[in-house]
Design a binder for these strands. Sequence first.
DNA 1: GCATAAAGTTAAGCCCGCTTAACTAAAAAG
DNA 2: CTTTTTAGTTAAGCGGGCTTAACTTTATGC
Lengths: 151, 151
Amino acid sequence: MMRSVQFMQAIRAWMDIFMHRSMRGWGLFAKSTGLSMPQFSVLMQLHHKGACGMSEISERFEVTPAAASQLVDKLVQNGFIVREEDPNDRRAKLLDLTDKGRELLERGFQERYRWADQLAGRLTAEERVQVSEALNIMTRAAEELEAEPAP
Amino acid sequence: MMRSVQFMQAIRAWMDIFMHRSMRGWGLFAKSTGLSMPQFSVLMQLHHKGACGMSEISERFEVTPAAASQLVDKLVQNGFIVREEDPNDRRAKLLDLTDKGRELLERGFQERYRWADQLAGRLTAEERVQVSEALNIMTRAAEELEAEPAP
DNA sequence: GCATAAAGTTAAGCCCGCTTAACTAAAAAG
DNA sequence: CTTTTTAGTTAAGCGGGCTTAACTTTATGC
């Protein structure tokens, strides 16, 4: 399905450089906090999707419930998330970020944003307006894609 | 340093959704290939920066030379990269992707691009033009940032 | 109500990534 | 030419992530 050659070229070039940059950045940040990437990804997941049960973790990361349980356990022990009984289903657990967990992620985002700020510094005022509008368009589209489930 | 509130808001919103998406995507892809994230990151590094020595690996990933050596060893054994003597310095090694390694990364990128294609499908023709131009501006700026070393 | 299914946990065992420490070999410094 | 520095390897040991297998506890189906 060929939408637009120009668009695909542009987004691929951007994705190449941006994905590499952010993967490396998050990796180093996670390491600096003493968290492993899987542990860190669980925090990101909770940040992005909000509180959830163990089963959502094991499904989204494609690991066994046992693995999810152990992973979460370490994060609970370190005070980054809380694990409480679900009042509606006493078998299930509800996981959520603690303030400590949220604060850690915030620091990570700040580091990422510093790069965005450097990027902004290389643009003219007109370019910044143009890019802002385009980013808003893409963010909206991405959110729609996220909401409507893939076939 | 406040460049532009609008710009920063726009890029943060975009980064939030895009980083989460691509981290998760790469993670699942790496898992599907049987590679660990560190192994995969080394391949990405070679793809992005081209051939290099062991020392570059250990520096960029902030691990000891020993760790880099062992990591590379597994990738060599699995045929994703080659490790040859540097003709200019017989102590040093030159690492580079094999065709097999390149082909594996290509498959990963194709999966990522599928998402970009879905995104394109949600935009009007005018929006695609607008977004393409903005992405080109950002890609250029990001490449400049990459080239000029951070202080 | 009783069998069955579902949500998590625990424990054993495996491989992996990482570190330190001890090493080899080649280049640079003096 | 000897000493020192640089590039990388090897081995031992630790902790992490993951799986399977055997559980416990709570909800559901009939």
